[in-house]
Design a protein around this nucleic acid. Structure first.
Length: 453
RNA sequence: GGUCCGAUGGCAGAAUGGCUAUGUAGCGGACUGCAAAUCCGUGUAUGUGGGUUCGAUUCCCGCUCGGACCUCCA
């Protein structure tokens, strides 16, 4: 491993590029914030999951053991409201949404985390943490709520680079009167009858949003771990609050050594979000283009920059995948080649996937001319990026079970006969007819092949 | 209002104190009965005003514009 370039990542805590050195090299520990399961995830949510996927694949190639935890928030006001609107039990809503979530990510070839803890299964750990925070003087009970006392943690604001006083000046919402400081946030709040709740020393209630991540990361990864990531919109207040809770419980520790934040996906130059209504679900995108085209689109911009989603860009990504698969079709790769150094190098530099993709283009050009090593490199590089899960045949012809391939072959024979007879009008008519059914013909030196449009 | 990030060719997008990627789209050509695919060729860019420097797209400052966060958000 010593010959590999060091992995450098941008740490949003220090706002600089840093060499990542694991706390314990025998177990590289990563935590990413997962979804709140009240509705299907959309293309914006997907971006951080996909960024994490690239990071994890790359870490697994470099370290003997990687533990990747991604949580599921399955208790939250939005869930309660949605379940009420749908007139269905909360468990039915969360169960269905989680299944959809897994299905969507699997379609994108996003590897599952090693551990996917759910908030409702870790209430006890949260209550334990809340108790510790109260005992240490970092939290207080007020009107049935337990609140974190931000003034008790001098380093509050250090992660997101803001001061409590500047926050106070900008507060736009009504502040509950029982808060000691407007920045104090809920660790535990009462649940009225009819809403989900758990018994606790503070009465029947449910956890605040931030405490679950502190409790679950501590439970599965310990008081200090290597990378904590999520969308850049989580930096404040979510991650700032997590950090405050965790460090107040375990003051001698680091909590997360390295903070990674993924840039927002935009739609018409605005953040794609449910509240703005400018979102597309993953299913929408998959109806439009293959999953690997979507993956390539995400890879084509750096994870920290914003990515303005358009259908045109998705189409372009699909054409690029077409070319990669053509290259692999031309020169079938050997499957066990290690990823080429240029890719390792690009990813080592803060996961520079756009730079890595330029290398894929070079390999594809060479593979197109029949160079075996280039095809091997193209394939191995793509594998590291989660691409080329299909064969070229599957890519171009799709699920042939749903098509009458013998009929297509028959039409191709008919057209061939027409061409031999110089009856080009008939030959073109057959081609047009197939095109209407979404079948494109290509006359190559080795005969005519077909592919799906 | 506060904090932060960004601005590179039609679009996407790297890199770099001097040699100006890469892709895609466009255009021209080869190949083809015609297409498609493939190949060859080709034009266009560092928001703006200063500063540092022999030299700035790159470093520094101002300005403009865009976005995110400050409220649930990936």
């Amino acid at each position: 491993m010593s010959h590999l370039p060091p992995l450098r990542l941008h740490n949003s805590h220090t706002r600089s590029l840093e060499v990542v050195t694991p706390i314990t090299p025998d177990n590289f520990r990563v935590y990413f914030c997962g979804p709140t399961v009240y509705d299907r995830v959309h293309l914006g949510n997907l971006r951080s999951m996909l960024c994490a996927d690239i990071l994890i694949r790359f870490l697994r190639a470099r370290y003997p053991r990687v533990t990747y935890v991604r949580n599921i928030t399955d208790i939250d006001d939005k869930i309660i409201i949605r379940a009420h609107e749908n007139q269905e039990p909360i468990e039915a809503l969360t169960h269905r949404t989680i299944e959809d979530f897994h299905e969507d990510l699997a379609a994108l070839n996003i590897l599952p985390p090693d551990i996917e803890p759910r908030a409702t299964q870790h209430i006890e750990a949260m209550l334990h943490m809340i108790e510790q925070l109260i005992n240490r003087g970092h939290a207080y009970v007020a009107e049935g709520n337990v609140l974190f006392d931000v003034r008790s943690f001098p380093s509050y604001g250090a992660l997101s680079g803001r001061s409590l006083d500047s926050l106070r000046a900008g507060t736009r919402i009504d502040v509950a009167s029982y808060k000691r400081d407007p920045g104090d946030f809920v660790l535990w709040k009462p649940s009225p009858p009819g809403e989900p709740g758990w018994e606790s020393p503070y009465g029947r209630g449910r956890p605040g949003w931030h405490i679950e991540c502190s409790a679950m990361s501590q439970h599965y990864l310990g008081d200090s771990f290597d990378i904590h990531g999520g969308g850049s919109d989580l930096l404040f207040p979510h991650h700032e609050n997590e950090r405050a809770q965790s460090l107040c419980c375990a003051p001698k520790n680091e909590f997360a050594r390295h903070w990674l934040h993924v840039g927002m996906l935009l739609s018409n130059s605005e953040k794609m979000s449910k509240s703005l209504g400018n979102f597309h679900t993953i299913r929408d995108a998959l109806d439009h283009a293959p999953a690997e085209a979507l993956r390539l689109l995400y890879l084509s911009s750096h994870y920290r920059s914003m990515l303005d989603f358009t259908w045109e860009k998705l189409d372009e990504a699909r054409r690029i995948m077409d070319r990669f698969y053509r290259a692999l079709e031309k020169t079938p790769p050997h499957k066990n080649t290690p990823p080429p150094g240029a890719i390792i190098h690009a990813l080592s530099d803060d996961l520079n996937t756009p730079l890595a993709l330029t290398e894929l283009h070079q390999f594809a050009d060479a593979a197109m001319t029949g160079q075996q090593d280039a095809a091997d490199h193209l394939y191995a590089a793509g594998q590291l990026l989660g691409l080329f899960a299909s064969t070229p045949g599957e890519w171009f012809q799709g699920d042939t079970a749903s098509l009458d391939t013998s009929k297509i072959e028959q039409k191709i024979e008919e057209r061939l006969a027409a061409r031999k007879a110089k009856d080009f009008a008939k030959a073109d008519a057959i081609r047009d007819q197939l095109a209407e059914q979404g079948i494109l013909l290509e006359d190559g030196p080795n005969g005519t092949t077909w592919r799906k449009a």
